[in-house]
Amino acid sequence: MKVLVPVKRVIDYNVKVRVKPDGGGVDLANVKMSINPFDEIAVEEAIRLKEAGKADEVIVVSIGVKQAQDTLRTALAMGADRAILVAAAEDIHTDIEPLAVAKLLKAVVDEEAPELVLCGKQAIDNDMNATGQMLSALLGWSQATFASGVDIDGDVARVTREVDGGLQTISVRMPTVVTVDLRLNEPRYASLPNIMKAKKKPLIEKTAADYRVDVSPRLEILATSEPPVRSAGIVVGSVDELVAKLKDAGAV
């Protein structure tokens, strides 16, 4: 079984996000970028499937700017076998919408014929939480989102999902698209030898035009702004004072 894992290059989750002064988006110039944390979990899961003998090959794919090569190399260093970069934007500030990404991924799936696509449940930049579901729809496949447990058994996968207030377990027919949540696993760190080895693993470059997919956005971004700033309140001197303040505020 081939497993395809889409990975996105996003701002590192530890970096403070700054909106450009002209309201034209979030400043990404000279900012540390990393693999989307949820995608890293998806890569880890795919590698574990391979280690367990359930997958033969793990292919990672990234759609966006050329710099996403680094993101793919990270996934290769973790243990993915090969990588596909689909260049679809020139400017590092251009975010390709989930619908266009899903269409490109469908084209990659048509070419590579994986039986399983493992995606992060959402990217921590646009927070859309949509690509996996959209890909599944376009393929006409089953979907299992927000997975905290994945067990593949022949032509079905048993997936435990994080839903509001608990867990839901479903069985989906293969091939399938699974989007992963935080609890699924803890991604490994790439060792230095593996980072060196990753440099020699195959990485092919394609463009959106190669797949004849129109990536023009459906949503026009009119403005990007800072959220209202929260100002610091007061420091209380004791638990008694805190209790009094909370009671005054009607909070308890």
Binding site: I11, K16, V17, V19, V26, I124, D125, N126, D127, R218, L219, E220, I221, L222, A223, T224, S225, E226, P227
Partner: peptide, 17 residues
């Protein structure tokens, strides 16, 4: 209007769909 970057920025989007 919707939050992006976990609420660290707000974006106003106009749909052409």
């Amino acid at each position: 209007e919707r939050p992006i970057y976990a609420g660290n920025a707000l974006q106003t989007v106009k749909s052409s769909d």
